[in-house]
Design a protein around this nucleic acid. Structure first.
Length: 259
DNA sequence: ATGGTAGCTCGGCTA
């Protein structure tokens, strides 16, 4: 089973690029971030025409996540548990039913800039909720994964120029420590587990020719539960997509699971 | 220190 994650930075602007990539990459499941659309305005039909079930959790203008699946979905949940007052659409999860069931969480973790400030506080509190939710899921038997735009640069080798990010919310020690807490629960960073090649990134700023200089950062991640990690056979980044017409500033990352 | 680009929406926020 091939499962992908792609921050598309706006479905209205990215539909042609998304359809092109889906057609060639043929993921069984894809989680999307930053759809920047309400559910009613999301262009379901052209995606359904490629054979996908479409489930969205959108909001006006900002954020918004979705799951696309060629396999049946069950028990779809919208929103990260732990704060009923949180209105930002950053989490969706569902059970994908193949030969073996797996729970797939799609997430758009808060950016957190500027630091310090309320946005950074929200990011760290959101990560505490994610950690609590991961603990709960680890008590269940079903394999699961949490995939998406984490807005976290885990290590210095995950960016071209660490000095440029030193005081950024994506790289600050508190952010990276929370990510490490998640991993320490027993979750596996699929890219680090299966892909040793250096200088591979998932995001390049639109400004200053960042992609042409490979001045990127690795912030889109797959964290796998122990049962899911046992099924992991590959993890790759579709970096070439960034060089196309009207690209997102992120590129797809995907895993192959032996189920 | 600023501005450089992009999306959504039509001024200003978010990234």
């Amino acid at each position: 089973m091939k499962i992908a994650s792609f921050n598309i930075n706006g479905i209205k602007a990215r539909l042609p690029a998304l359809l092109d990539w889906l057609s060639e990459a043929q993921p069984d499941v894809a989680v999307l971030q930053e759809i920047k659309s309400v559910d009613e305005a999301f262009p379901r039909e052209p995606i359904e025409d490629l054979g996908y079930i479409v489930e969205t959790h959108g909001q006006k203008s900002f954020n918004g996540v979705a799951i696309l699946s060629k396999l049946p979905l069950e028990d779809i949940q919208r929103g990260l548990p732990g704060d009923e007052t949180d209105e930002q659409a950053r989490w969706i999860e569902a059970t994908v039913v193949g030969k073996q069931a797996i729970r797939i969480c799609g997430l758009y973790l808060p950016n957190g800039n500027p630091v310090p400030g309320p946005k950074y506080d929200y990011k760290l509190a959101w990560m505490d909720r994610q950690i609590a939710h991961a603990k709960n899921m680890l008590r269940q038997d079903m394999p699961f994964l949490m995939a998406g735009d984490y807005n976290i640069i885990p290590q210095p080798e995950d960016c071209a120029n660490p000095a440029a990010w030193a005081d950024d919310a994506l790289y600050r020690l508190e952010s990276r420590t929370k990510f490490r807490e998640l991993c320490a629960l027993g979750l596996t960073d699929a890219f680090r587990a299966r892909n040793a090649a250096p200088e591979q990134y998932t995001f390049w700023d639109y400004q200053a020719g960042a992609y042409n200089r490979n001045d990127g950062i690795r912030i889109d991640h797959f964290l796998l539960s122990p049962q899911a990690a046992d099924l992991l056979t590959d993890c790759q980044v579709d970096a070439h997509v960034r060089g196309r017409e009207k690209p997102s500033d992120h590129v797809p990352i995907w895993v192959e699971l032996d189920i």
